[in-house]
Simulated assay, not measured.
Amino acid sequence: MELLECTLAIDDLDAFVADIGAIGETHGTTLQAFDARYVAGPRHLERALELADRSIARGENVARDRAVEILLYAAGRRQIDRALEMGVGESRNRAVVLADGGDETAALEDIRELEAFVDWEPTLEAPDEETLQTFFEIPDRERAATDASLGALVRERVALLEVEK
């Protein structure tokens, strides 16, 4: 798995999704773009990828597309429409693009060539804690009751999706 932290300016979401789909197909790589505000660090996406692959291997996946299954796990939700909130949208986005399998490096280089790509920038260094707590339904009292990091609590939500099936 490789990650590309960047800024994207997307005018046409359907065209962008088609473009990354074509890039992924060319390089044998699964690509998924996330709004960085909803990502609690690289370990969050690593765990989502691991659980999505396990679900697919067991034939328990909800989505037919591996990238969408990864999105479901990253969002900690089984409903695709609710998980899509975690994806990028039509506008300027602080994003992180996950690439897994095939020629990940070449796939991410091709992402950098898209018109929507604005610039590389670190987007996971300072997580948006308020957005993460709201999206993953982590109340202040839960955070106060543990010494676990917010990232660990988010990864717990991702893992709980497996249990709740």
Rank of each mutant, 00 (worst) to 15 (best):
A159Y: 04
V158E: 04
T123I: 07
D128R: 05
R155F: 06
A152M: 09
E121L: 14
L161I: 10
E130Q: 14
E125V: 11
R155D: 11
G101V: 02
R112D: 02
L161C: 08
D103G: 00
A152K: 12
R143L: 15
D140G: 09
A152I: 09
L160A: 13
G151I: 08
V154G: 02
F117N: 00
E104Q: 08
S149C: 08
A106F: 01
E109L: 07
D110V: 00
A152D: 14
E137S: 14
A116Y: 03
P122V: 10
L153Y: 08
V96N: 00
V163G: 08
R155L: 12
W120N: 14
T146E: 10
E164H: 13
T123A: 09
A107C: 03
T123Q: 05
E115F: 11
T105G: 12
I111P: 03
L132F: 07
R157A: 06
D147K: 13
L150E: 06
L161P: 02
V118T: 06
L150M: 08
A107W: 00
V97I: 12
L108K: 00
A107S: 04
A107F: 08
G101S: 08
A145I: 10
A144K: 15
A144S: 15
G102L: 05
R155P: 01
L161R: 15
E104F: 02
V96E: 02
A126H: 14
E130W: 11
F135G: 05
D100C: 08
G151T: 09
E142W: 11
F117V: 03
L108R: 03
V118D: 00
I111K: 04
G102P: 06
D147V: 12
T134L: 13
T131L: 07
I111Q: 07
D140K: 13
A152S: 14
E113L: 10
G101Y: 00
P139G: 10
A144W: 11
D128N: 15
G101L: 07
L124G: 03
L114G: 01
I138P: 01
I138H: 04
V96K: 02
E125M: 10
E109R: 10
E121G: 12
L153G: 01
D110K: 04
I138G: 02
L150N: 05
G151K: 10
D128F: 07
D140P: 15
E125I: 11
E164Y: 10
L150P: 03
E156V: 06
A99G: 04
V158F: 00
A106M: 09
F117Q: 02
I138R: 06
R155K: 11
L98E: 01
F136Y: 15
E164V: 13
E109I: 08
E156G: 11
F135S: 07
P127W: 03
G151H: 07
D128V: 05
A106Q: 07
F135N: 06
I138A: 00
P122H: 11
P139R: 12
L98I: 01
V96W: 05
A116H: 04
A148Q: 14
S149L: 09
T131H: 07
E125D: 15
L124F: 00
L150Y: 08
L150F: 04
T131Y: 00
A107E: 01
E121C: 13
F136T: 07
E121F: 09
P122W: 06
F135P: 03
R141I: 14
I138L: 08
A107Q: 00
D103I: 04
E113H: 11
L98N: 05
P127V: 05
F135A: 09
T123S: 07
V163D: 15
L160S: 12
T131V: 15
E156F: 09
